[in-house]
Amino acid sequence: MTALSEGSFCRDPLCPDTLVFSPQLHALLQHSSLTSTYALNTQDRSVCVAVSALRPLLFDNGDVLAVGSFSAVTVAHVAVAAADRSGRVLVCGADHTTSQIDEIQELLTQMDIKNVRVLSEAFSGLNEWDASVQRLKVIIVLPQCSSSALNDPVPTMHSEHGNWDLLPELCHSSVSRSKIHTMASQQARLLAHAVSFPKVQTVVYCTRSVYPEENEQLVKRVLDKTHTHPKLLPFRVNGPIFSDDSQSGDTTESKFFRLETSQFTNGCFIARLSRQVRERERERGGNMWRLMGK
């Protein structure tokens, strides 16, 4: 990626369905028939990496719920991944503005994507008894965050519906502790509710933040406070999180994945929370292993 010349592109080493273009080619592609017909879709790499981490965790005929703040392109990207396993994507309509829902539905129509269902409820109002979540196996949490891992926060905050109130502080390369605390509280509520669904086997949590308070500290704090029913397996942080055909480098050595910010790419943080497998269940073989999302 660092060696891309003016007219070149390459496959993303972390995302099998993603190409990385030089800045010059990227500008040209914005006005090409490839993008206008949705043969090629433009998205920030930090979001593509999150979808790539999600892909190998999906279940056949299982649903995935997208929670937080994200674009129509992100919904479409997750939907394409889910379609490969005959699954659906659920979106909580009450958590988004009318214009955002219209944007999602318009893009899905233009791309002929039919496996997305917009629920009328807010995520906080959903529970395990709702008929709409009976096939739910995976939740991806993409909360509003400090955007502190973005080189230039404006494009991604615009496309992914970020928090514009942070922009003055991001221009000075620092976000106040009070705002980080406020966002972390909101993020923790989303993650805590995500791990409360008994049929959910995996939760993927992703931010574009460099602050531990929004990332690993938050994940550990939520899990420490989560009370799991005695008949259910508890959630634990697990790795690796990428498919076998991605060049994930040394991600297997850490329970969390962090894409460092550089002049070539924006950064992000990803955690995969899966239900822990007890040793006696692990010995039963591959069927149980696959059932628990390993």
Rank of each mutant, 00 (worst) to 15 (best):
F257Y: 09
V222W: 08
R280I: 07
D17N: 10
S173K: 14
F242L: 15
T252Q: 06
E169T: 15
G125T: 13
F256E: 13
R282A: 13
P234A: 02
S120I: 12
S52A: 15
H181V: 03
W129G: 01
H26L: 01
L167G: 07
D165T: 05
T2Y: 04
Q110W: 03
S262A: 07
H158E: 12
S33F: 12
E216P: 04
L90K: 05
T18C: 09
M1V: 07
S159L: 02
H229S: 01
V64M: 03
S209L: 00
R177V: 14
S254A: 15
G267E: 10
L29V: 07
A79M: 09
V195F: 04
T42V: 06
R135L: 04
A79E: 10
N238C: 09
H193K: 10
C48S: 15
F242H: 13
C15A: 14
S33D: 11
F123Y: 04
Q24D: 15
K294F: 10
K225I: 09
L166W: 14
A83S: 10
A271V: 00
W129F: 13
K220W: 02
E216V: 05
T98R: 14
M111T: 08
N266C: 12
A82M: 13
F269N: 13
A81C: 08
E106M: 11
N287D: 11
R88T: 01
G87T: 01
L191V: 03
C268F: 09
V91L: 03
Y205M: 03
S209G: 05
F70E: 01
L54Y: 00
